[in-house]
Design a protein around this nucleic acid. Structure first.
Lengths: 117, 117
DNA sequence: AAGTTCAATAGATATATATATATATATATA
DNA sequence: TATATATATATATATATATCTATTGAACTT
């Protein structure tokens, strides 16, 4: 199953000689890595992952007042996590009167999902 | 496309009355969220994401000395990131003489990948 | 208008992270 | 055996993060 292709130094080098050919790393890939890492970082907290999970499962918009009691956390802390998710572009929010409704922006996860599979 | 199912308070409540029914959050989901968040957190840095990307693309084992020049970082910093990936169970390593070879453990990403899609 | 309620922001604090430099360890070569 | 090399660990530091309490802002109710 595991391919035995290896990226490895061929032989021992003379003293002072650098290990490998300098490898060019295209900027495009770096930028993609940054985009994906931004999403991953936002999901890298169990609370935020559960928030996204709940929002995705409900396929619609969920009131913050329903989210807070799911966690043993203060309302401001939940708001803080929602803000992180908003900043990463994973969720959006909409205010209706007193209530704020959050929802997942599915496209935000597409690039990550594609890379991962 | 967007379903209009909403989780929302039905009416305004009397003063002091709690917002919502207490929602039970099963431990199983919490533990799964923690497992996935651990993976996401490890991937939540562009350097680490690129490391995993390179290792996956090579489908085999890659020498650390090939990884270091890909980044504008010191060798110990790259080692630090590789350690984080090891701790998260995303990569494994094998030493052969002076060289250390890293590889992705594909199963480590499966649960996350499944959740995401 | 006054009071209530929901959510966001501000401020404070303790912990975690990314990075560098310096050092240690193991192994290869001369 | 002595020296050089590849990688890992240790230490230090500046920045970021997660959390709390207190406060603010906005909108609804009476």
């Amino acid at each position: 199953m595991t391919v035995d292709l290896e990226l490895a130094p061929k032989t021992k080098r003379a003293a002072g000689e650098p290990c490998c050919e300098p490898v060019v790393y295209p900027d495009v890939e770096r930028e993609q890595a940054e985009r994906i890492a931004t999403i991953a970082k936002a999901l890298g907290d169990p609370i935020r992952l559960q928030l996204v999970d709940v929002l995705r499962k409900h396929a619609g918009k969920v009131c913050v007042c329903e989210l807070v009691p799911l966690f043993d956390l203060s309302q401001p802390t939940v708001s803080h996590h929602l803000k992180k998710l908003r900043e990463a572009g994973i969720v959006g929010s909409e205010r209706r009167g007193l209530w704020a409704y959050y929802y997942v922006i599915p496209e935000s996860l597409e690039e990550f999902s594609a890379w991962l599979s």
